[in-house]
C-alpha cells in the first residue's frame, strides 16, 4: 500500500475506497424499518414515498449523472404501470412477472425514444421528451376502452411466489415488498455509478465534446443510461399501481414529471441519496400542507412553486448541499 502523505497517494486511496459503504448509508434503511414498526398508521404514505424514491433515483441517473434534462419521465412510469395492470387483468396477475414485464416494456420505449431523441440537445430535447409523454397521455385517453380513461381500471395481484399476499389494508407485506425492490434497484444504480461507466456519465455531463474526443461513443452511452433509467422508472410505475390495485391515466400526468424532478432537485442531484431525502421531504410536506390547510385550494402547488424558485436561486445543490455547507462551517469552527 502506498503511504498516505503525498497528494497522489491520497487520490489513489480515494479512488480505491470511494465505492465502499459508509456507515451513514445504513441510516435510510434503519429509518425505513423503524417506520414500519413504530408508525404503522403511516405505512401507506411511507409506501408511496418508497416508490417515489425509486422513480427519483431513475431520474437522477439521467439528470444528475448524465446531464440529460427530461420533463417526460412519466412516459416510462406510466408505461410500466399500464403493462402491469393490463397483464393482471389478462390473467397474468403475478406481481414479480408484472415488474419484470414493466421494466422490459419501459426499456423498449426508452430505447426507441432515446435513440431518436438523444440526437438533439438542450431545449429541443426537452420539448421532445415532453412531446413523447403527452402523446402517450393522449393515446391513453383516446383508447379508454383499454386503459379505463380517467376512471381507470381495478385489478388484483396474485400472491408473491404463491405465498405472500400484497395486502391493501395494512400495507405490511406491500411495504416490505416495495422496500426490497427499492433496495435492489438502489444497489444496482449504486454499482453503475461507482463503475467506470458512472465516471464516464459524469464526463459526458461535464463536457460531451471532450468525452467524444477521447473516444467515448457519447450517443450510444447516453442511450444505454436512458434505457436503464427508463426500466427503473417502469418498475416504479408498476409498484405504484400494484400496491393500490388501480391504475388511471394520471400515471402519464405531466405534473408528475414535474413533481419527480422537483423531488430530485430538492434533495440534490447526482448524489444518490438526494432522491431519498427529496422524495421524503416532498411527500411529507405535501401531506402536512394538505392536512393543515385542506385540499380545497392548491396551497401545496403554490408552496412547491415558491420552494423550487428559492432552491434554484439560493440552494442549487439541494438540502444535501445545505447540510454539507453547515457541516463544513461546524468543522471550521472546531479547528
Amino acid at each position: 500500500m502506498v503511504p498516505n502523505h503525498s497528494s497522489a497517494a491520497k487520490a489513489v486511496n480515494y479512488l480505491q475506497t470511494r465505492h465502499r459503504f459508509h456507515w451513514g448509508e445504513a441510516i435510510p434503511w434503519i429509518l425505513a424499518i423503524l417506520v414500519f414498526y413504530f408508525l404503522p398508521g403511516y405505512r401507506l404514505l411511507a409506501t408511496q414515498i418508497l416508490v417515489m424514491i425509486i422513480f427519483a433515483l431513475s431520474l437522477d441517473l439521467i439528470v444528475g449523472y448524465a446531464g440529460i434534462i427530461s420533463l417526460g419521465h412519466t412516459a416510462f412510469f406510466g408505461t410500466g404501470a399500464y403493462i402491469t395492470a393490463l397483464l393482471a387483468t389478462n390473467n397474468i396477475p403475478d406481481p414479480i412477472i408484472g415488474l419484470i414485464a414493466a421494466a422490459f416494456g419501459a426499456a423498449i420505449l426508452g430505447f426507441l425514444s432515446g435513440w431518436v431523441l438523444l440526437r438533439t440537445t438542450g431545449l429541443t430535447l426537452l420539448v421532445l421528451t415532453m412531446a413523447v409523454t403527452i402523446m402517450l397521455a393522449e393515446l391513453a385517453n383516446d383508447f379508454d376502452e383499454i386503459t379505463g380513461g380517467f376512471d381507470g381500471i381495478n385489478f388484483t395481484n396474485s400472491d408473491i411466489f404463491g405465498l405472500i399476499e400484497l395486502d391493501q389494508l395494512w400495507y405490511s407485506s406491500s411495504y416490505i415488498y416495495v422496500l426490497i425492490v427499492l433496495f435492489l434497484s438502489f444497489l444496482f444504480i449504486r454499482t453503475i455509478i461507482y463503475a467506470p461507466f458512472g465516471r464516464m456519465l459524469i464526463g459526458i455531463r461535464e463536457n460531451p465534446r471532450r468525452m467524444s474526443a477521447i473516444g467515448t461513443p457519447v450517443h450510444q452511452r447516453q442511450v444505454i443510461v436512458y434505457v436503464v433509467s427508463a426500466a427503473i422508472a417502469g418498475i416504479a410505475g408498476a409498484l405504484w399501481v400494484q400496491v393500490q390495485g388501480n391504475v388511471t391515466t394520471e400515471v402519464y400526468a405531466f405534473e408528475l414529471s414535474g413533481d419527480v424532478l422537483i423531488m430530485l432537485i430538492l434533495g440534490g442531484t447526482g448524489r444518490l441519496y438526494g432522491a431519498f431525502l427529496g422524495a421524503t421531504v416532498f411527500k411529507i410536506l405535501e401531506n402536512v400542507t394538505e392536512q393543515v390547510l385542506g385540499t380545497d385550494q392548491p396551497y401545496w402547488q403554490f408552496a412547491i412553486g415558491l420552494v423550487l424558485i428559492l432552491t434554484v436561486l439560493f440552494a442549487r445543490r439541494g438540502l444535501f448541499g445545505i447540510f454539507e455547507d453547515l457541516g463544513n462551517k461546524w468543522k471550521e469552527r472546531g479547528q
Partner: peptide, 11 residues
Amino acid sequence: VLLTIGLVFAS
C-alpha cells in the same frame, strides 16, 4: 427550466 417551472406552479 426549474425556476420557470416553479413560476408556472405558483401562477
